[in-house]
Nucleic acid binder design. Structure first.
Lengths: 209, 209
DNA sequence: TTGTATATTCAACAAATGTTGAATATATTG
DNA sequence: CAATATATTCAACATTTGTTGAATATACAA
């Protein structure tokens, strides 16, 4: 039942945000009584956190594993810029390969959280922010002479590019006359890697051998 | 009075979204009676549209002007990729040079709209979507052999990068330990141009002479 | 001044909101 | 079976929500 509630709330929060969804809309969509939210999760805000936290920790761990895996395989700490970016864009791969609608909903919610000052501060520091350090360190290995400032701007640009894709707004469908699809994470992923890698190289100076 | 209400509503909507702000919060912050919203704008949704529309048309026109200006100056339809991107990133320049807090609030709201499936569909087609065609055509001039699909993905990546910066979430401040600032549009703008230009070149094939 | 259009206040409405305590049902364990 | 823990329902609460009609004030024109 807990999982069922989380699934339903996840989808609704993803499409309309925290304030745009009422407890009663959630319980109605889930086919349960209003009081059950309080029984399982307490306040509405705690439900929201539960929804967010459920997949955030999993995702964060997978990302770190993906980042470390390439180091191990190569037999040296060296890894290509593309591999580092690939690890960061892992959410796209997860959602695509799992075929789980829940992951798609969660990622749209994640996009909402990343682009909102309010939720950003409340939800990201706990888990996600801590892993960003690993990612930036990996970038640092690739660009030994880059300024810390530039690496962080790169991170923000990468994060923004990813976020808008995760949001699945349907805008690219409209603009391209159906040529591209918001839900086509596979294509978005493949094209994003060379795009972002080239961007990083353009502003981070000489790359390590 | 109309403008005063729009200013106050703009700031609140930008920070908490449409559903996160009540009519009474707006009127209280503006120091006016609740009924005045209805008197000047009608329903809450119409106020929201009014807030969004006020600067959207202005911004959209300026963008088109910026795009055309470089063509005229060069005396030929040719313009560099960087100039095209510069025109698209104009919002950053406007907010920075005007020093107007209102523009900053509006742009945060714009970021919210761009990354939300719901508001995206309701607010963007009317004005902003129509201008995107001009931008993509300009890209097409630069990359005559690129596939339409790739140009649209480029657009989405550029749009996402811009959107997260417009959102001014304060995350880069936190992650960089204060080294970078969300509100520093000037730096974000300067670094974004080479970053995005390199990204486009990486996936759009041979550039026009 | 009077008359009129515009602006603002006041009070209230029905509906929706988050939350909770008590009652009831179901499952689990002895 | 009985006893106990877990799960679910029911009904209600105090607030807050968007919206509106009527009353009042202010500005402006004749």
């Amino acid at each position: 039942m807990r999982e069922h509630i989380l699934d339903v709330a996840e989808e609704l929060f993803a499409t309309r945000g925290y304030y745009g969804v009422s407890i009663r809309q959630i319980t109605q969509a889930a086919g349960i009584d209003v009081a059950l939210i309080n029984y399982y999760f307490g306040k509405k805000l705690e439900l929201f956190r539960a929804v967010f936290d459920r997949r955030t920790e999993i995702l964060s761990n997978w990302r770190t594993e993906a980042l470390n895996a390439t180091k191990a395989e190569a037999g040296s700490p060296e890894q290509s810029l593309e591999e580092i970016i690939r690890a960061f864009l892992l959410p796209l791969k997860i959602a695509q390969e799992s075929g789980d609608a829940g992951w798609h909903h969660y990622l749209a919610l994640l996009a909402h959280v990343i682009t909102s000052a309010e939720w950003n501060k409340q939800l990201l520091p706990k888990v996600l922010d801590r892993r960003v350090g690993e990612f930036i360190e990996a970038l640092r290995d690739r660009f030994p002479h880059a300024r810390d400032e530039d690496l962080h701007w790169c991170y923000q640009y990468i994060s923004g590019t990813l976020a808008l894709t995760l949001a699945q707004t349907g805008r690219i469908d409209r603009l391209s006359g159906g040529l591209c699809k918001s839900t086509d994470f596979a294509t978005a992923y493949e094209k994003m890697i060379p795009f972002l890698a080239a961007g990083c190289r353009a502003i981070c100076g000489q790359e390590a051998g």
